[in-house]
Design a protein around this nucleic acid. Structure first.
Length: 422
DNA sequence: TCTGGGGTCCTAGGACCC
DNA sequence: TCTGGGGTCCTAGGACCC
């Protein structure tokens, strides 16, 4: 059996933990740049028609009329709260797969002597008591079924956020209950095609011939089909695989016509991704750089372009990566446009001790790992850009993201601790 | 004026190798 | 008349997830 634990309206719940005055009230969280809605608690979902991913400026009046509190996203806070939840889960099973910032699978196959429903409630209650965050727990024989059990735990009130699918009769009942689009891994496109041939419920899907599923939905669909029938196909990954790509692509706070600011933003993003790269002890072979104008705009001239460069020797040296990214950017930048976004992506990631040198470059010239290590230590201790490349410049506020309504970073900054009383 | 960001996996087709 | 067969690597595009 596998348990699936996931936090309810995670971002909104994190905000509410530190704001008792908002308990029971509608709360939404906005995307980077305060562009659209990415999370809403159940009060906000009930209250008004608030479509997820809707542009904020279009529905701002609805939010204000309904007294919905909105926050800019505060990933520092969410990441740290997530860590707390995962730490608690580690005490429930020796084998935990952290699937996303707010979800994890627990391998519970060795716990057959325990009452699974009690176990689920214990998880739910302990996490709430220790963190203030509400969670749902679904327990079932496969991952896809555990996801489904988790959904039932939350959607069917009598289950009180804990549901155990431990018999075949319960599995069949679940498949009869679930719409095809409720199944993890079946997205919009497939829902349309399935409905077109009369498949509306999960039970209809598992009755389809496997050959059809394989042909129309590839091996991905085949796995889902088998998992829903109780045959486990998705590997349990207690140890995460190293990332195959590390990238970032953020919109600017304002549109930028000049190469200078874009170069600075690009250098900054490279600095960020290079830190992640070193944290997983990898080196990158390729850098992809792309620029975009605002494709929503009807008045701006549109342009976007991308380029891939190969590093002479795979590296995780921030300065070497910035130098190459800068050259790449010069290739694709064209004057006369108002740019909205620059994206950088590192791929061809290999473990740092497997890096193959080449005859013509001296390795020490390409990378100085002591320097990088010192940089990481300093920035971790004293703050993000305590020591960084001068390419980043000093005009960060001219391109950085807009976050007007960000809550305090209660758990990671002394100056932003929660205050009680007057 | 204002519309997110970071990922994974799979397949087909082209280029190339022996 | 008749022009092989087995393979790898890479990229772009599609679909999906949170």
């Amino acid at each position: 059996m596998i348990a699936m634990v996931d936090c309810n309206s995670f971002y909104a719940s994190c905000e509410q933990v530190f704001r008792p005055d908002l308990w029971g009230k509608p709360v939404v969280v906005l995307s980077n740049n305060d562009g659209c809605i990415i999370a809403a608690n159940k009060e906000a979902k009930q209250l008004a028609h608030i479509p997820m991913f809707e542009a904020v400026y279009k529905i701002k009046h609805i939010l204000i009329e309904n007294k919905v509190t909105f926050f800019s996203s505060n990933y520092t806070l969410y990441g740290e709260m997530s860590q707390r939840v995962m730490n608690i889960l580690e005490t429930f099973s020796p084998s935990v797969e952290v699937y996303s910032i707010d979800e994890a699978f627990l391998d519970v196959k060795g716990l057959s002597y325990i009452d699974m429903r009690m176990y689920g409630f214990e998880i739910k209650e302990r996490i709430y008591r220790y963190t203030g965050l509400p969670v749902g727990v679904g327990i079932a024989p496969t991952k896809v079924l555990a996801k489904l059990a988790n959904r039932m735990a939350k959607k069917i009130p009598k289950h009180e956020h804990v549901y155990v699918m431990d018999t075949d009769a319960k599995r069949i009942a679940a498949l009869e209950w679930a719409d095809i689009g409720d199944i993890w891994g079946i997205g919009r496109k497939h829902v349309k095609r399935l409905q077109a041939i009369g498949v509306f419920k999960a039970i209809d899907f598992v009755k389809l011939p496997l050959a059809w599923v394989r042909k129309e939905m590839t091996v991905v669909g085949e796995r889902l089909w088998k998992e829903l029938r109780g045959e486990s196909c998705l590997e349990f990954m207690a140890v995460p695989n190293p990332k195959k790509a590390i990238g970032t692509a953020k919109s600017f706070g304002q549109k930028l016509p000049d190469l200078g600011r874009i170069e600075e933003a690009c250098a900054y993003y490279i600095t960020e991704v290079a830190e992640v790269l070193r944290a997983q002890k990898s080196c990158a072979t390729y850098i992809h750089v792309a620029v975009y104008t605002n494709y929503h705009s009807t008045i701006d001239k549109q342009y976007s372009n991308r380029i891939t460069v190969t590093m002479p020797i795979p590296t995780n040296d921030t300065f070497a990566l910035i130098a190459q990214a800068r050259k790449a950017l010069h290739h694709i930048y064209k004057p006369g446009f108002r740019y909205k976004k620059v994206a950088v992506n590192l791929t061809g990631l290999i473990p740092e001790h497997y890096v193959q040198g080449n005859l013509f470059e001296k390795r020490s010239k390409i990378s100085d790992s002591n320097l990088m290590h010192t940089l990481d230590v300093l920035n971790r201790k004293f703050g993000k850009t305590t020591v960084s490349s001068a390419m980043i410049g000093t005009r960060v506020e001219e391109w950085e993201l807009i976050k007007k309504e960000r809550s305090p970073r209660y758990t990671t900054q002394w100056r932003e601790l929660m205050k009680i009383g007057v």
